[in-house]
């Protein structure tokens, strides 16, 4: 077991950020941690990194208590923070050398590891440049390279693909897969559901400091497999309409985004006609109707009541 969290509690004054959370992550997993903003993901990650004190519970990493073996455990963890964490006034090579030294790498071994990390992220040719000259995608790759220089067994990636071009995203996704194939365990958080679906072997959905769903993608989608999702494109939307749709028999939830109404309903209730009637009654016009199969996004929406990008 790479990570074993038991009854973790973290409070910020009156706010209970993590509420008796228990979680196990196996070696070799790419573990997705999802949750809306304020769900407690960052607190869990910070607790695993030993960056914050905890108010209860226990964290074991590589079968050792984080409390007792923090320095030793940290030697085998790499962090890719959401915000780019590199020195703008050091070259890419110097950045990696600096962070490598923090992990006791010296001499030829340091040079070798720096070179490997830069080759891995495709930055070797531009190693002598300062990050301020890099594109957003290159900075993200350097951010990852800094976490890999000491070849950690556990890598925590917090939104590693935010705000980058598709080409860089693809490169990063492929890198994550390669790292995993090489034996690293990865904890991955993202707002991009398709990334999580593509990468993660297991996924935990957090809300209000607790894990509300945990399993493989298939296991999670089966949670809402008894539901239907209908997306209606409308000429105009008003909130009276949402209230009316929610009152239709079998409708479990109704969410409005722009000119779209997403309705989650119990399967085989035969209520689509009644929903369209509601639209007609509200003097709106139906532009499109789309029936969706259960997805991770749907699971998230169903369980948390919020879209992941809210």
């Amino acid at each position: 077991m790479t990570v074993r969290i038991t009854n973790l509690v973290k409070r910020y004054n009156e706010l209970l950020a993590v509420d008796h959370l228990t979680l196990n992550i196996d070696q070799g997993e790419i573990f997705g941690l999802l949750g809306p903003n304020g769900a407690g993901k960052t607190s869990v990650i910070n607790a695993i990194m030993g960056l914050i004190g905890i108010d209860g519970g226990e964290i074991k990493i590589f079968d050792k208590s984080l409390n007792d073996f923090e320095r030793e455990i940290k030697k085998s963890i790499g962090i890719v923070p959401q915000d780019i964490a590199v020195f703008e006034d050091l070259t890419a090579y110097e950045n990696l050398a600096f962070f490598g030294k923090l992990y006791q790498l010296r001499g030829d071994l340091l040079k070798k590891r720096v070179e490997e990390a830069l080759h891995f992220t495709g930055l070797w040719e531009r190693r002598k440049e300062f990050p301020k000259k890099y594109s957003g995608g290159m900075k993200r790759r350097l951010n990852i390279a800094c976490a890999l220089v000491h070849q950690p067994k556990l890598i925590i990636m917090d939104e590693p693909t935010v705000g980058i071009d598709p080409q860089s995203r693809k490169h990063i996704i492929e890198s994550v897969k390669t790292l995993n194939q090489k034996g690293s365990t990865i904890i991955y958080t993202s707002h991009y559901m398709e990334e999580v679906e593509e990468l993660c072997t297991r996924i935990a959905i957090m809300d209000h400091g607790r894990i509300i769903a945990l399993g493989t993608k298939e296991e999670l989608t089966s949670l809402i497999g008894l539901e239907e999702k209908v997306v209606l494109g409308l000429a105009s939307v008003n909130y009276t309409l949402v209230d009316k749709i929610k009152k239709v028999a079998g409708v479990k939830d109704c969410v409005v985004t722009d000119h779209q109404v997403t309705v989650i309903s119990e399967r085989d209730k035969g209520n689509l006609g009644r929903i369209i009637d509601c639209v007609s009654d509200s003097e709106s016009e139906v532009l499109s109707i789309h029936m969706e199969k259960p997805t991770l996004e749907g699971v998230f929406l169903t369980l948390t009541g919020r879209s992941l990008r809210d």
Binding site: M49, R71, E72, I79, P81, D83, I84, A85, V86, L102
Partner: peptide, 14 residues
């Protein structure tokens, strides 16, 4: 106040 500090503090440095 800057994320690079997070990276440093998550390293095994005392």
């Amino acid at each position: 106040f800057v994320s690079v500090g997070t990276r440093i503090k998550s390293s095994p440095i005392r």
